[in-house]
Nucleic acid binder design. Structure first.
Length: 481
RNA sequence: GGCACGGUAGCCAAGUGGUAAGGCCGGGCUCUGCAAAAGCUCUAUUCGUCGGUUCAAUUCCGACCCGUGCCUCCA
């Protein structure tokens, strides 16, 4: 019998089991990126956790339906596309493509559906019309449409904010209520009437030309692809208010039915103990870190070193720790393969989904940690306790071939659950130029002749070319520095 | 001001009403022409501060100090 994932629910403030409402598949929605530039590692912390959520659910034996949108129209995409001289479509396509490349580098599973906001304008208009018909929304003089928060009693339930506090908010003067003519400060835009600076970026609607508000995009896409009520909705903590609160108001308001059954929010990433921001120069993208020599898998590893409900402090020290940790896993994997004689028949994500978490051996504790509120930090701790055991078993030659095979499978299972690709030593092997090989051979000769001076000189020369020599018992290895 | 979360070794980070996972760094030792690698091993009497409850608190309660997030379009 398989165990089920228990996950914290922002709405209930408690751990709840994940199970499909329709008994068939866990339908979940992730607020995806707004494509106006490259996503940074903070964004990816969220996407990585959503990916691990899906993997854990699937590996524990449940099917999923994964929808993650792309927001390809909003103030920023319009502004930036104009600045770049490209059409909104060309511009957002470019950045959506970059996003997909980064996702692939991070070994994220591809969602079943990845809807674009601009391809769901009719659905959004329909929902807005329903809200107007139900008396939950109104049109202002300029043709914009607003949600009337005072008409929706449950408003603030997710974010635990009541309407009075909203009005007393400390974000003085930052709203554009004057510009758009809202009745109340807490009302939010469903449809924004066209403004001069929008250029060609507008759609026809019953209320004139304009474009949808941010929140309605998600509500409409969820309704279309997942239905009125579905299993889980997720995103970064900053989306709790107002984005998700507003989605609830729109969706429940228009359908009269429940919305997401479970809310999963991932806490922000910090850099060197502080907030990430462009102005501080501590906002990193996957490409930035690749440029500094950190493989995306190292970045991914460092993003799961803490529990998702906790702010995680990203530092280069932790990146280096991640790199070394990954190397250690790679070495163990190679050694286990060697001992077992072959890779297990079942070694890919799909195989594991079919087979489930059986015979995890030492890795069982790590898997259980994931089932306990996706505790990746604890899982990593348990993973390395297992690594330690196996390393000592390998050294002491107490680990048999059959045992090695079993543990290898456990290791592969847990790395699939985390979505961490462990390269084998062989896979890590890099092309060594012939010139370097020749120099290394010469150094070995010199060493054999006990010509230490010459051997050291050659090693220095190799090092200055970026290669390191590691002497073994009766031969040597060449490694990149 | 309101709401929420957090402060655990040099760094990152789990955890629990009964006396602190794991990783990185660092130290010692073995090995070694040297170096690296590899192996062995050590590293928080203590969990922001001060009180309270308790046989027992880092873990529960209160106060305070510090940090972080959100408070209308930021993952």
């Amino acid at each position: 019998m398989l165990k089920t994932l228990k996950l914290y629910d922002t709405m209930d403030k408690s751990l709840r089991e994940i199970s499909a409402i329709d008994k068939k598949s866990v339908r979940f929605y992730c607020c995806g990126p707004t494509v106006y530039g490259p996503a940074h590692i903070g964004n990816f912390r969220t996407f990585v956790l959503q990916d691990i959520f899906r993997r854990t659910v699937e590996l524990s034996g449940q099917k999923t339906k994964h929808v993650r949108n792309i927001t390809d129209v909003d103030d920023k995409t319009i502004r930036e596309s104009q600045a770049s001289g490209q059409s909104l479509t060309d511009f957002t396509k470019k950045w959506a493509h970059q996003f997909h490349i980064d996702c692939q580098k991070l070994n994220l599973l591809i969602p079943d559906i990845e809807p674009l906001a601009t391809e769901h304008i009719p659905e959004q208009i329909n929902m807005i019309q329903t809200l107007i018909d139900k008396g939950l929304a109104y049109q202002s003089k300029d043709g914009s449409v607003y949600f009337d928060v005072s008409e929706f009693k449950d408003y603030g339930r997710l974010s635990k904010i009541n309407s009075r506090e909203l009005k007393e908010g400390a974000s003085k003067g930052l709203n554009d209520s004057d510009e758009y003519g809202k009745d109340s400060l807490s009302d939010f835009a469903l449809w924004k009437s066209i403004k001069a600076e929008d250029g060609d970026n507008f759609w026809e609607s019953p209320w004139g030309q304009g474009r949808p508000g941010w929140h309605i995009e998600c509500s409409a896409m969820i309704k279309k692809h997942l239905g009125d009520d579905f299993d889980l909705h997720s995103g970064g903590v900053d989306l709790i208010f107002p984005h998700h609160e507003n989605e609830i108001a729109q969706s429940c308001g228009s359908s009269g039915k429940p919305f997401a059954n479970h809310w999963f929010h991932i806490t922000h990433l910090m850099v060197d103990g502080g907030k990430m921001s462009k102005s501080l120069g501590n906002l990193y993208t996957i490409s930035d870190l690749e440029g500094r020599g950190y493989h995306p898998m190292i970045v991914k590893y460092s993003l799961i070193m803490g529990h998702y409900k906790q702010t995680l402090n990203f530092t280069f020290d932790s990146l280096n720790a991640a790199k070394i940790g990954l190397d250690r896993l790679a070495k163990l994997k190679s050694e286990l393969i060697g001992l077992a004689g072959s890779m297990p028949a079942c070694d890919r994500y799909k195989d594991f989904v079919k087979e489930g978490p059986v015979n995890l051996g030492f890795f069982n504790k790590a898997w259980c940690s994931l089932l306990e509120d996706l505790n990746t930090a604890k899982a990593l701790g348990a993973l390395f306790s297992a690594v330690k055991e196996l390393e000592s078993g390998i050294r002491g030659k107490t680990l048999g071939s059959k045992e090695a095979g079993k543990h290898l499978k456990g290791l592969l299972f847990i790395s699939e659950a985390l979505g961490i690709k462990i390269p084998t030593i062989e896979e890590q092997h890099v092309q060594i130029p012939n010139k370097i090989k020749e120099l290394a051979k010469q150094r070995w000769q010199a060493k054999m002749n006990k010509n230490w001076k010459e051997a050291d000189r050659l090693r220095k020369e190799l090092e200055s070319s970026g290669w390191q020599i590691k002497d073994l018992k009766d031969n040597f290895e060449i490694l990149p520095l």
